[in-house]
Structures are given as structure tokens and as C-alpha cells.
Write a protein that binds this DNA or RNA. Structure first.
Lengths: 201, 201
DNA sequence: ACTCGTGGATAACGACGTTACACCAACCTT
DNA sequence: AAGGTTGGTGTAACGTCGTTATCCACGAGT
């Protein structure tokens, strides 16, 4: 295992951990198991990640990086509402494509781990896409003026609420699509400037 | 510990486990620790609960029982929309009053535990309050006709989305109230019969 | 009083996260 | 080029976890 290049080894370990998580669930994500899987000892994991929390944080950031990539690859749209819709769809697509990462990021899938402040900062950076879209919507007059972050948070909460229930198996497989459309549609409509109820506080 | 009455002992153990969870977090919820706390051996826990999963399931059901009590104690309201609002408020009040139970029920706070089908049935029974309220709203003409369970699920997702982000510390303490009002208000408004968009699929 | 059966305490097993220690390869000095 | 130094790696151990096999004490039945 010597001299493999630290970064390369780190990535290899992270990929192995992600694979274990996807294939066998959080119970299989063990320091000993990851080490055995790549054929090194546990010491390497501790020098590269500092402990199981560090490994979990690596997976957490990796999950957000994948989300970010999805948002980045979205074709730009002049219509702010369509942009919000596209971001919502990409969010759910990402969550369902790799639910094990979504569970790590938002559902506490790795037993002892909760993200530290700098880990959460990575998450917030990804979240910025949604805030920007809300701000653009306000600038274009599609949304009532207000705090774009507040709009983005409500939209995020709606999306996250449906997806976390969906991942938990609450909906039948046929109902989840409509629940997601309703929840994100309701949140979007709530802030559209035509009606006069209070919002965007 | 002999002859204390099985049910009484079971309740004592469950209360102790809940207290440990609330005071010291999920890491303190250990079979050994619970046994030491009540002054018996771990064997009792295994005969009464079958294992840590059984203890976790007991806490899961206890959490839903407390939610159910809150819903039950709500004064009846002739206005279906006000009823929905009251249920939403009670839901958040319950979640914030005892967040450790909320985490067990919906956020996977206890490492290895995920509820079995019969545990989830208990949860769905509590959920019935919301479905009934939605059905009453439809019967009164306040909601567009459709599947009451679908309306309830979207409302639940909105509430759960905000609360789980709130419990995770995403919002500042000042913003959470408004986010919750927006998210549940948006979900409620979405199904009200005045506008003509598609919903309640 | 004696036996039997039930149920709790003790202590062990395997697996976990973590780390002290020993070792060896690579680099720097001369 | 040879030897000392440094830092990364493997081995093996520690303490704790969930779980359980074993043993023992107490109450019931005769």
C-alpha cells in the first residue's frame, strides 16, 4: 500500500466506502471492513481520515459534490420558475439515484456521525443554487420580493420532506411522483407574486 | 428485581431509556447502561424486549403514543381548515417538546434500528387524524375532492421537511416559525378548492 | 422439608472503534 | 554510496458494545 499517492489512495478508500454503503448498507461500513476491502490495515484509514467520523464526513462531502455536479450540468433556463422546477427535479433525481448518499447527507445513515460546521458549509454552498434561482425569480418579478433564502428553504423543506418519506417507504411507489409534484408545486405557488397572502418572511 | 410486575418493570425500563436518550443522546442508549441505570442485569432487557431493536421499537411506539395523546387532546373545531392548522401546530409542538422521540420516530436516531411493519402500522394509525381532517375538509367543500390520504401525506411531508431541517439546525432559531407557517400554509392552500390547478392525485 | 422450575446475575464471545508499539522504506546528510 | 533520520504502515492490544450460555437463588407444589 505504500506510495500509492495519498490523494489516489484517499479516493480509492472513499469509493470503497461508498460502494460498501450502497451494496450492504450502513452496518457494513466498518473501519475494519473498508480496510480489508482495499487490502490495507486500519491505520491507513486513521492517518487519512482521522477516524470513522472523518470517513463519514468524506462521504457526506462526496454526496454534496455529486449533487453540485447535477445542478451544474443543468441547462440554463431564462424562465425562473422553470429553473426552480428543473432544480427540484434534479434534486429528487439525485436523491433517488444514490439514496445511500442522500441518507448520509440528510438522514443520519452513519450511526455516530453528524456533520461539523465546515461540513455543513459545503452543504450550504450546494444550496446556493436554489437561493440564486429564487433571487432571479424575484428580480424577474415572478416571485414576490422577500428573502430568497427563505423561499429556497421552504422549497428545500418541501422537497426533503417528500423524499425522506419516500426513501423511508411511506408512499406506495406510484404515489411518490404526485406527492413530490404537489409539495414542490405548492411551495412554488405560495411565493408567486399574483396572490396576496403573507410569505417570504 | 424479582417480581416487580412485568408491565411495571417494562414501563420503568422504557422510561429510563427515554430519559437517557433525552439527557445524554443516542450514544448513551446502551443495553448495559439502561440495565445499570435501573439496577438490574442486561438479561432482563432481553427477556422483556428481545434485544436492542425491541427496546428501540418500544421507544418508537412510545413516541407515537405521545403524538396521539396530543392529537386526541385537541379541542374539536367545526372549521376543517382550522382543524388542519391545529393539527399542524400540535405536530410541531410535539416534535419540539420531545425532539429525541421525534428523532427516533423519523430521523433514525437509534443506530441499528428501523421500524418493522407492525411498528409502522402504529405510526400510520396516528397519521389517521390528519387523513380524517382532510376528508372532513373535502366533505365540507373546503378542499377539492380527491384522495384525503394524498392531501394528508403532502401536508405531513411539508411539516416533516421543515421540522427535520429545524431539528438539524439549518434555520436560525428565528426563521423556523415562519418557514413552518409557509410550508404548511402552502400545502394547505394548494388543495383548497378555489383555484383550479391539478392536485390531490 | 424437599424437589422442581422459572427467571435473573455473572461472565464470556465475537465484533467494533481506536491506538501504542514495532518495523521498514524513502529521503537527507556526508 | 553508506548510514542516520523520519514518517507512514502493519500487528496486536484495550475498552466497549450487543448478545447469550451457564449457573444459581427464590418461590411453588407435594
Amino acid at each position: 500500500m505504500r506510495r500509492r499517492g495519498q490523494d489516489e489512495l484517499r479516493r480509492f478508500l472513499l469509493d470503497t466506502a461508498g460502494r460498501l454503503l450502497a451494496e450492504e448498507g450502513p452496518a457494513a461500513l466498518t473501519m475494519r471492513r473498508v480496510a480489508a476491502e482495499v487490502g490495507c490495515s486500519t491505520t491507513v484509514l486513521y492517518t487519512l481520515f482521522g477516524g470513522k467520523d472523518g470517513l463519514a464526513a468524506g462521504l457526506y462531502r462526496e454526496g454534496f459534490a455529486r449533487f453540485q455536479r447535477r445542478f451544474q450540468d443543468l441547462p440554463p433556463s431564462p424562465d425562473p420558475i422553470a429553473r426552480i422546477r428543473a432544480l427540484s427535479a434534479a434534486y429528487r433525481a439525485g436523491a433517488l439515484a444514490e439514496p445511500h448518499y442522500y441518507r448520509v447527507m440528510f438522514l443520519g445513515a452513519i450511526p455516530g456521525f453528524s456533520p461539523g460546521p465546515d461540513d455543513q458549509a459545503v452543504g450550504n454552498a450546494t444550496f446556493q443554487y436554489l437561493i440564486d434561482a429564487a433571487a432571479a425569480g424575484m428580480a424577474a418579478g415572478a416571485y414576490r420580493p422577500g428573502d430568497p433564502a427563505a423561499v429556497a428553504q421552504v422549497l428545500w423543506a418541501a422537497a426533503h420532506g417528500v423524499i425522506s418519506l419516500e426513501v423511508a417507504g411511506v408512499f406506495g411507489p406510484e404515489g411518490a411522483d404526485q406527492r413530490y409534484a404537489d409539495a414542490t408545486g405548492a411551495a412554488t405557488a405560495w411565493f408567486i407574486s399574483s396572490d396576496g397572502s403573507d410569505g417570504a418572511g
